[in-house]
Design a protein around this nucleic acid. Structure first.
Lengths: 341, 341
DNA sequence: ATTAGCACTCGATGCTTATGAGTGCTAACG
DNA sequence: CGTTAGCACTCATAAGCATCGAGTGCTAAT
């Protein structure tokens, strides 16, 4: 579809633009080492590339700027994957290794590592809680009428809810309930916890404990708000240093998006296994139409668990970021495999 | 110090400026109802007020702008406290009452209420964990070599840490440890937890449990990172709608500050009981030198527990915000009193 | 004591005019 | 025939300049 020379020129233009954020002219490409053509030749090729939709011109008499299609071609065929230097690799390893024995922490640190190494904004999606299994259940009474229900999953995640104790329930009964629930529900996936609560544990408890129904109801209600707050965003202010965000209104739109967890989750979670790049207008959400989102998945037992992603301007250092995501997602996968060996 | 007329004029100027964010001229003040003087008279008074340091002039032929000293006088002597309408009051009551039986949630919701009702940024400081008392302690083994330690305080706060199990420790020993720790440490303030771990529980455990020292060491290490993450910031993007933040650099400085929890805590926590207003340059931190920070404390048993605050541009609706903070802090105090009756 | 009148200041607005980086086209060149 | 030098053309940006007007300070009249 493109001649070798066109590919070379397109590549040069995009590299230039990524560095400078300014429309690229024929002269500056011509002067590059490795390109043996005069500005006039470059101009002709540029005109062709524009006709084909790979480049755009902000206005006549300005240089060219890559279009979404241009970036797409660049990412699919031209980009040179970056190499990570020792220092960066170490930074990843150290951060991930450092007493990281809880999934929660791994996820959070991943977000930090990504944003600090890339200087863009990172969005990290933790694994779906629903697939985790109940490890331990505990009721802790705080005073006469309230108690905390604590749930520990096999991944080390601890969830807790406060709820109201049914009138007239005694301490010893609470302990009994804790015992029964643990016996009956250990190993049950979180997704089925609420239904099992009634079927398995319900009748057993009914025999030994008074006010059983009220308690179950309270518990059920406490469990229903499954605020699966598994999205971590880091490095939001990195975006503000990008010239494409020198306008406060754009900044606000973007930051407001970061606060909207559900939308953010939809944005990141929709992709299947592996590394994916969504460029500019390829993104659904209006607020990031001049951004690119690169995502990778980490997995356990071959099944993708969650997603790590980097959001930057379309004019993003694709090579570097892709490598970074690749390395980190693999490291995370390894770490999880070791941890759940 | 100021004549009645000067006070009236100063008041009018500040009110005007708060509304418009533009330097205020003599003419617009003169035209106000309630002011029976010509622009010339106003001008003379304005010149005097400037001489006294209450007003400033951006440049010769511009109107006047309140100085820090001006705002200070306004807040101390002139401001009319706002009245909250039924709807706003309801919003507070509903949000706070809604199954709010856990301190954590109260704090977080307070931040949301403040920012949404004021349209500024709210900073809320939770109570110092150190004064809470241990209610329950639980060790939950996840696999052969790791376990989660869970701590529940009397306030319903749940803290959890993952740590490594000493080699060769058995399940039943873990349970024994849990029992001993609960018996020995229940009711101990979090501040003394670590030292008591050795003195009280240590010897007792030594008798019944093997590998006691390693376990204690692990636990101690897990407890030392007392990430007292008690600051909640809400409505950060509200700032971006203020005309004083149309410059991205200022936005970045501010947002970066919001990410620096320790600095933020210092900023908010330094104040004693009651409502306090810190205006512009009165603030220590450079990033908020053109902001005002208004804070109030909520308490339990007469002792201040934490702080709620609103940060806005110096050109802030002081009356409204002060009332809001006053109402909310009192509501929180009441709620806590009821909850720990 | 107040105010009308007036000259003055100075940022903001709008207009015109360079400037120059960049283009497209054509004709010459190897 | 692909490449390139040359040149006219475009157009965003910056610079210069006159104008406008909101606002001031001062003085003299009320």
């Amino acid at each position: 579809m493109l001649t070798e020379r066109q590919r070379m020129i397109l590549n040069a233009i995009i590299d230039d633009y990524i560095r400078s954020a300014e429309p690229v002219g024929s002269r500056s490409i011509s002067k590059r080492s490795g390109i043996g053509y005069s500005p006039a030749t470059i101009r002709n090729e540029m005109a062709d590339l524009e006709e084909l939709g790979f480049l755009e011109q902000p206005h006549t008499s300005a240089g060219r700027v890559p279009s979404t299609k241009g970036y797409r071609y660049y990412v699919d065929h031209l980009v040179k994957l970056g190499e990570m230097n020792e220092q960066e690799l170490n930074q990843i390893r150290i951060h991930l290794a450092d007493k990281m024995n809880q999934m929660e922490q791994v996820i959070q640190h991943a977000a930090m590592i990504l944003s600090s190494l890339s200087n863009y904004t990172s969005i990290v999606l933790g694994p779906e809680m629903l697939s985790h299994k109940l490890k331990h259940f505990q009721l802790v009474p705080l005073n006469e009428d309230t108690a905390v229900a604590i749930i520990v999953t096999n991944t080390g995640h601890v969830e807790n809810r406060t709820f109201t104790i049914p009138n007239g329930m005694s301490m010893s009964e609470m302990e009994k309930v804790t015992r029964i629930l643990n016996a009956k529900l250990a190993g049950v996936p979180m997704a089925r916890l609420r239904s099992r609560l009634y079927t398995e544990a319900g009748q057993e408890m009914g025999r030994y404990v008074s006010h059983c129904e009220q308690l179950l109801e309270s518990l059920d209600k406490a469990l229903e708000s499954d605020n699966d707050h598994r999205v971590f965003v880091s490095g939001t202010t990195n975006m503000l240093t990008q010239p494409e965000f020198k306008d406060v209104d754009k900044v606000k739109t973007l930051l407001d998006l970061f606060d909207e967890t559900p939308t953010l989750m939809k944005l990141v979670s929709s992709l299947p296994d592996g590394i994916h790049v969504r460029i500019g207008s390829e993104n659904d959400h209006q607020a990031i139409n001049n951004c690119s989102l690169i995502t990778a998945t980490y997995s356990l037992d071959g099944k993708p668990l969650g997603t790590i992603g980097i959001l930057g301007p379309t004019r993003m250092e694709y090579g570097k970021v892709i490598t970074l995501l690749d390395v980190l997602s693999k490291d995370m996968t390894l770490l999880l495999a070791k941890w759940y060996k």
